[in-house]
């Protein structure tokens, strides 16, 4: 990257920052003090979500693969306490619309960040990468996945299915740790590879959970 483009980037960032800082309330026209404020300080109108904010920013959590899921859930509930359309039934229509839009954006952000797989893919996309759609042909690996799927399909007793559940959860957890490390190392190729593997085990997990439900197992 040339010095010039570096400078321009920096400049753009700064001007963007200024724009956000000086964002004025759509309702009363006064400046909103902080870009992160949900409501206007003067007229108390609900503000639009800041453009260009990623899901981490929207949720107000640190941008990291190892995010604290309890913290995320707490933030989610807190945000929805203020944003939920039910709270705006008696407000002006524009505010109702913003609340609907904002609230569903928060839902989407929460859902995406909560699951380790979707969180990983989202972070990958923030870095301009994606899991390729090409077909996997690693026979040994596919055999393993096929067999695991068949084991789940054929599991009859509660013990069998719960054992598989435990084993699969441990597998997912171990993959999660590896993904986290790969993100930390900035090794995106590895992240892509690992998330692909994680996707197969997440699919198996979905099968296991469906089987647990259909068998009426209560935990």
């Amino acid at each position: 990257m040339s010095v010039r483009s570096l400078f321009l980037n920096q400049f753009r960032k700064q001007s963007l920052f200024r724009q956000i800082r000086l964002a004025s309330c759509w309702s009363c026209g006064k400046d909103v003090q902080a870009s992160s404020a949900l409501f206007c300080g003067s007229c108390n109108a609900l503000q639009q979500p800041a453009k260009g904010d990623n899901y981490f920013k929207i949720m107000g959590v640190m941008e990291s693969y190892d995010l604290d899921e309890t913290e995320l859930a707490k933030k989610y509930k807190e945000l929805q306490k203020y944003l939920h359309p039910d709270k705006f039934a008696n407000r002006q229509q524009k505010e109702q619309e913003i609340s609907e839009k904002y609230s569903s954006l928060v839902n989407e952000a929460y859902k995406t960040l909560l699951e380790p797989l979707t969180r990983g893919i989202y972070m990958l996309r923030l870095r301009g990468k994606d899991i390729p759609e090409k077909t996997e042909v690693d026979q040994e690996f596919l055999m393993k996945i096929m067999e695991k799927n068949e084991e789940v399909e054929n599991a009859e007793t509660e013990k069998e299915i719960m054992d598989l559940n435990e084993e699969n959860k441990a597998q997912i957890k171990s993959l999660q740790k590896q993904v986290s490390k790969a993100f930390f190392d900035g090794d995106m190729q590895k992240v892509i590879k690992l998330l692909g593997v994680l996707k197969y085990y997440t699919s198996i997990d979905a099968q296991i959970q469906a089987s647990i439900r259909s068998k009426g197992i209560i935990r």
């Binding site: 759609e133 077909t135 996707k199 699919s203």
Partner: peptide
């Protein structure tokens, strides 16, 4: 035997 890493399908 094939798989789709984007879907988790085998």
């Amino acid at each position: 035997l094939v798989g789709a890493p984007a879907c988790g399908d085998v």
